[in-house]
Design a protein around this nucleic acid. Structure first.
Lengths: 235, 235
DNA sequence: TCCTTGTCTGAACGGTTGTTCAATTCATGA
DNA sequence: TCATGAATTGAACAACCGTTCAGACAAGGA
């Protein structure tokens, strides 16, 4: 890392989901007075395109192996221009993973609210998870957090990930309490389950024999069967 | 990568398991005539120490994040001296993973030969696998092959890994044929199983609440239960 | 003892990395 | 049409990487 990045041209809309990422954001340009809507839209679109390109690269080659010049090339942009949209490489990774985690959380909450059995809720979560991380346009391996992020960003990602993991753990625990699932350590089962689904990014091939949906179904079958109490089996 | 490493002081015993690694090995020193046993032993001991130090670092921080200077520091040695024992960083990673894969294969073969049920064979493999990758002295995440190795080494590792995976797949298929396991896609189940056990290296903490053995047992319970046919359940 | 041989190291090399910056092009609103 | 500011870029920077190398050091064998 060459230099401590000092100042960055703030944009007023640095985070589309509203959360303030960096603690200090020195403003080079004064706050734009009612910035043009088209400009703003083009800006967020470019931003998204970069995130997609970077996410895809990270997913197939790993964070450390992908350079800024690679990301720039994948996004059809000059390396320097990346810094108009992100503070640096680490922030790009942060948004990739943060975005994926948000989508996982949405799927979790949706499943929790649905009026089906706990097993079916969990199945829905697993299927969504696999499709989410394997999704070609927005996918990102959410659980492979390289420990190289700055402490603050890292802490926020880990917190969100833990929230997700806790949700799954609670689902498993509830299933056990209701007698539908076998009694076991929910933390351990959750970790095994997540480890399995996350590992798909390591070998999934878009042109391979199995589609993401097929993998999702197969994994869900296996991973839920392992939780089922014997006497509640239906098959 | 600064330079194509050209010549390297060959040692005659470059590979303890006998397989020739590099195709060309220019000899700087003429073949040692009956080299002193003490010298030889000290040499392989240092070599092993380096591998252990490097493996531990790789496991907790990842291949790309660990520099030669880190490995050297962890092994209490100067960076330059590493090159007396290995051709370079990539070879160190290769030996780490190759060694782990060898140990996994041994466990697999042992389990296969034992006269127990297929489920118990698989359980033994899973338990060995978890303990193997979490082992503090020699552990290494065998399935996280960074694609940055030179093609030749990479090919050999992948071949060995596939051999292992096929073994597990066969075990699952055999269980299904015998009616002990439920019918499913063995390839998919094997991948899920391996993904789960390999992911333990990402969160395992030596000082955490769960020992490696406990994790191994818990994972084996869950992952085998998911394969069991309903009517052959005993619990 | 001396000579040989292997072990070890500090300093450096070339290359690549993430990042910055001055300058140029482009788009926009008046 | 022009002026303003955003968007973009090539070139450069400092830091770090894996690696090399000449030479200092230690240790056996004679």
């Amino acid at each position: 890392m060459p230099k401590k990045s000092a100042n960055w041209r703030s944009r007023g809309l640095s985070r589309s989901s509203g959360i303030q990422v960096m603690t200090i954001q020195r403003k080079r340009t004064v706050a734009r007075k009612r910035a043009g809507e088209r400009i703003r839209r083009r800006y967020v679109a470019r931003r998204l395109a970069i995130l997609r390109a970077a996410g895809k690269s990270f997913r197939v080659r790993g964070f450390a192996e992908v350079g800024m010049r690679d990301i720039a090339a994948a996004a059809d942009i000059s390396p320097a221009n990346l810094y108009n949209y992100f503070r640096g490489k680490e922030e790009i990774l942060f948004f990739c993973q943060d975005n994926t985690l948000d989508r996982l959380m949405v799927a979790l909450k949706t499943a929790r609210k649905s009026r089906v059995s706990i097993a079916d809720k969990l199945r829905s979560v697993i299927v969504s998870h696999v499709r989410c991380v394997l999704d070609e346009v927005e996918g990102s391996a959410a659980h492979f957090l390289s420990a190289t992020l700055p402490a603050g960003l890292q802490r926020r990602l880990v917190a969100k990930r833990d929230q997700y993991e806790t949700g799954i753990r609670r689902l498993i625990a509830a299933g056990a309490r209701s007698g539908q699932f076998v009694a076991s350590d929910p933390a351990l089962s959750a970790r095994a389950l997540l480890g399995a689904v996350n590992s798909t990014v390591l070998w999934f091939d878009v042109e391979g024999p199995l589609s993401a949906a097929q993998i999702a179904e197969g994994f869900a079958d296996y991973l839920i069967r392992g939780l089922m109490a014997t006497d509640s089996r239906v098959d």
